[in-house]
């Protein structure tokens, strides 16, 4: 039997982009495959849950789990993989801070189900007298049903979308939507060499993106913004600080290490790497910075400038609502 260290990849509430980033290792993926045994990777290989269950506890050296935790099935897999792994790594924004799926925490379970299964313009779901599900007149998914004497079940969708460490103990975090191949490679090398930082570390540089930004020299000391513009409203100067051009860039309060990829692509930072270690609440911190740069000393001038940020929650917590200190506007629990 192979004695190579065992590695598992798993996905929960995610889009598949994190899996893509593994493939983006390009030829380095061969180096990784040479050095480790992959024991679970649902997107690419045929292993089953029972194969993992059959392994001894802590026999997997590391599991890289991407995606937020949103259903009972994901919770169960997270717990199983935690138990079988020496090191559990939250891989990507969703596992790290909730990611895009966590924006659902602004809505109740009922609001989401109603929209997705009844109200969305692309949905065809005629009224149905025999419909089942909470208060439904139209067909909704149910978690248990009867079928020829069997009772098949579906996982339960939770009311709250959670980051991985809000469900199980997490050893390390690799940030990004998706993480860069460089960070993944560095993490794998660190795992193989056993030279790991203290538990709980985010495996990326602990400094704000601005410090690594190629445009830092054109960032003015005092921004005094009179307007926040969206990228499609301006022809963006490819060399000048995006904030100085009135674009809402989250670089000042977002962790670097992404090689400033969006900036290099002439787009502002949207904050996927999350906060640095000194910040408790990413959204509050970027709000603090951006709002204080608004020009004007009168309520009406300030309001006019800040009206350019119509959805502060969606903007500042695009990738991190699960980690917001107030955790989103979850109001009802049917």
């Amino acid at each position: 039997m192979s004695t190579k260290p065992k590695i598992a990849f798993y996905w929960c509430a995610s889009c598949g982009g994190c899996e893509e980033s593994v493939v983006d290792l390009a030829e380095d993926v061969l180096m990784v495959l040479d050095a480790v045994d992959i024991v679970l990777w649902p997107v690419a290989m045929d292993f089953k849950k029972k194969d993992v269950e059959a392994m001894a506890d802590k026999s997997i050296v590391a599991t890289l789990l991407n995606g937020a935790i949103r259903s009972s099935e994901q919770e169960e897999m997270a717990r199983l993989l935690r138990r079988k792994s020496q090191v559990l790594i939250a891989y990507g924004s969703c596992a790290h801070t909730g990611g895009i799926p966590a924006l659902a925490n602004q809505f109740s379970h009922e609001q989401i189900m109603k929209y997705v299964y009844e109200d969305a313009p692309t949905v065809v779901n005629p009224a149905n007298a025999s419909a089942v599900g909470a208060g439904a007149s139209k067909t909704r998914p149910v978690t248990v049903c009867q079928d020829n004497g069997r009772e098949p079940t579906l996982p339960v969708i939770r009311n709250v979308v959670r980051a991985l460490d809000q469900v199980v103990d997490v050893d390390y975090y690799i940030p990004g939507c998706p993480p860069t191949p460089k960070l993944l490679k560095e993490a794998v090398l660190a795992l193989l060499s056993g030279k790991l930082p203290p538990k709980g570390s985010v495996l990326a540089p602990d400094m704000a993106l601005c410090e690594q930004c190629p445009r830092i020299d054109s960032k003015p000391q005092d921004l005094s913004l009179t307007e926040f513009k969206r990228p499609h409203q301006v022809i963006i100067d490819p060399d000048k600080c995006l904030l100085a051009q009135g674009l809402l860039c989250m670089g000042p309060a977002t962790r670097g290490g992404c090689e400033a990829r969006c900036i290099t692509g002439n787009m502002p930072c949207t904050g996927c790497f999350g906060p640095t270690s000194r910040v408790h609440d990413h959204g509050a911190k970027i709000l603090s910075y951006l709002a204080s740069t608004a020009a004007g000393k009168e309520d009406k001038d300030i309001e006019k400038t800040l009206a350019g940020i119509p959805d502060p929650v969606g903007t500042f917590y695009r990738y991190g609502l699960a980690k917001c200190m107030l955790r989103g506007k979850v109001t009802s629990h049917e």
């Binding site: 709000l287 709002a291 608004a294 004007g296 000393k297 309520d299 959805d311 500042f316 989103g328 506007k329």
Partner: peptide, 16 residues
């Protein structure tokens, strides 16, 4: 003053 303008709006969206 500027921070509070935006924060109040955000807190409202968060249900406060």
């Amino acid at each position: 003053l500027r921070r509070m303008d935006l924060l109040k709006r955000m807190l409202k969206d968060l249900g406060i």
